[in-house]
Amino acid sequence: MNTEDLIAQLGRQVVPVKRLAPPLHRLMRGLAVMVPLLALIVVVMGPRADLAERLTDPGFAIAHVAAIATGLCAAWAALASTVPGISAWRLALPVLPALVWLGSVGMGCLRDWVVRGTDSLVPAIHPQCLPEIAIISIVPISVLMVLLRRGAALNPGRTAVLAALAASALASATLDLFHHAEAAIIVLVWHFGGVVMLSAVFGLMGQRLFPPPLPR
């Protein structure tokens, strides 16, 4: 088929389509579903008894806010990645809060190391928190998947990584509210490390999760 014939044929097939809303609007819609569900999980599991006290601890508060910011920025970036033409540097938005999160947790580990030495590493041996993060992530990832599949993920791996980063960071922040993880090394290895691991696994599944607009 020559290209001019193809254009004529495509023209004949044009029907009205529902325009994709901007990424921020889609994020707001997603949060309207995600936040109540994540809040419900915290209520059902019971908020940790020392939550008010922990939130006044700058180290905990900064790490918690940074995890939420990482989740929100990654969710926006994932949604933006399904709109062709949005520049790559804007999709790197979650890197900044993720670095703040990593830095604040790393500082906690350093403080523990100074006080307890090698004993501070012992809690990291057991895979605590990871299953919980994976399970809680189901809520935000499901909502994001519905929103993302309406767009065009031209780079499915990148979209999948960003979506998983968003979901697992939000899950980690949710877990902070009802789960005791006193040792900073646990947060570093099993919260932050878990988020990285889940993002990598999803990245590998990108092609399956977000089929290309046309068969390859």
Binding site: T3, L6, I7, L10, Q13, V14, V17, K18, R19, L20, T82, V83, P84, R150, G151, A152, P213, L214
Partner: peptide, 10 residues
């Protein structure tokens, strides 16, 4: 052109 047609809603 085909991709443009398929993803025009974006």
């Amino acid at each position: 052109l085909l991709t443009l047609h398929v993803v025009r809603h974006t």
